[in-house]
C-alpha cells in the first residue's frame, strides 16, 4: 500500500470506530461536554486537536529515548503547552481574527486528556511516523464524536446549524415552529452532551457486541 502499510492504516481507522477515544477509551470527555453546544465550535476544536496531537505525538516520539521516565508526564505537559502557546502567539501576530476564535480553546487543548493519553500510551513507545498516524487517527475519532454531538445539540437546542436557521425562526414562528415545535433548551446544557455521548456509545456497542465488557 505504498506510503501507509496495512498495519499503519489501522492506526488511523481504529480510533474512528472500535477504539474511539471518546466512546471506548472515554478520554477527552470534558471538552466534549464543554464546547459542543454549537457545530462551529466543535469543528474548530476538532481541527485544533488534530493539529496539536499530530505534531505533539511526533515531538514526543522523537524524544522518547531521552525523556527521563520519572518526569515524563511533566515533559509531555511542557511539550504540549509550549506547542500550543507558540502557535497561539504566531496566530496572534499573523492571523489575528483566527486567533481570537481559537483563544478560548487554547486552555482546553492543553488539558485535553486525549493528548496526554496518546503521548503516554503510544508516542513514548513508537516511531515518529506511526505516532503521527496514531495522533491523526485519535484526533479524528475525537473530532468525529465532537461533530456528531455538536450537530445534534445545535439542531435540537437552537434549531440552527452553523448559525443557519434550518428549522425556521422560533421568534417569528415560521417553518417547523409554526406547527408548535419548540427548541429544547436542555440541549444547550452540558449534561445533555453526556446523554448524547451515551446514546452514541449505546448504538455503537449494540452494533458491535465485541465491545461490550462483562
Amino acid at each position: 500500500m505504498g506510503l501507509i502499510s496495512k498495519k499503519d492504516a489501522k492506526l488511523i481507522t481504529d480510533p474512528l470506530a472500535d477504539n474511539n477515544p471518546i466512546t471506548i477509551q472515554v478520554l477527552g470527555i470534558c471538552s466534549a461536554l464543554a464546547i459542543t453546544a454549537e457545530l462551529k465550535a466543535s469543528i474548530v476544536m476538532a481541527v485544533s486537536v488534530l493539529f496539536v496531537l499530530g505534531i505533539g505525538n511526533v515531538v514526543i516520539s522523537l524524544m522518547r529515548n531521552i525523556i527521563p521516565s520519572k518526569i515524563r508526564i511533566i515533559v509531555q505537559l511542557v511539550v504540549v503547552a509550549a506547542l500550543v502557546i507558540i502557535v497561539d502567539q504566531v496566530l496572534k501576530a499573523y492571523a489575528y481574527e483566527l486567533s481570537k476564535t481559537l483563544s478560548v480553546f487554547v486552555g482546553l487543548i492543553i488539558t485535553n486528556c486525549i493528548i496526554m493519553g496518546r503521548f503516554e500510551a503510544f508516542a513514548l513507545a513508537n516511531k515518529p511516523w506511526q505516532s503521527f498516524l496514531d495522533g491523526i487517527g485519535n484526533a479524528a475519532g475525537y473530532g468525529l464524536i465532537l461533530i456528531i454531538v455538536g450537530f445534534f445539540r445545535e439542531l435540537l437546542g437552537s434549531g440552527t446549524l452553523l448559525g443557519f436557521k434550518v428549522l425556521g425562526d422560533p421568534i417569528e414562528k415560521t417553518g417547523l415552529y409554526a406547527l408548535g415545535y419548540e427548541n429544547n433548551g436542555f440541549m444547550l446544557l452540558s449534561p445533555m452532551a453526556l446523554i448524547v455521548v451515551g446514546i452514541i456509545i449505546w448504538i455503537q456497542r449494540s452494533r458491535n457486541k465485541a465491545l461490550i465488557e462483562d
Binding site: 529515548n65 531521552i66 527521563p68 520519572k70 518526569i71 509550549a82 507558540i86
Partner: peptide, 21 residues
C-alpha cells in the same frame, strides 16, 4: 534515563530551551 542526575539535568535543560524559545 532513570538516574536522578540525568533527570535533573534534563529538567534544567528543558526549562532553559523551552523558556528561551
Amino acid at each position: 534515563t532513570d538516574k536522578n542526575s540525568y533527570t535533573i539535568l534534563f529538567a534544567i535543560g528543558m526549562v532553559l530551551i523551552v523558556g528561551s524559545l
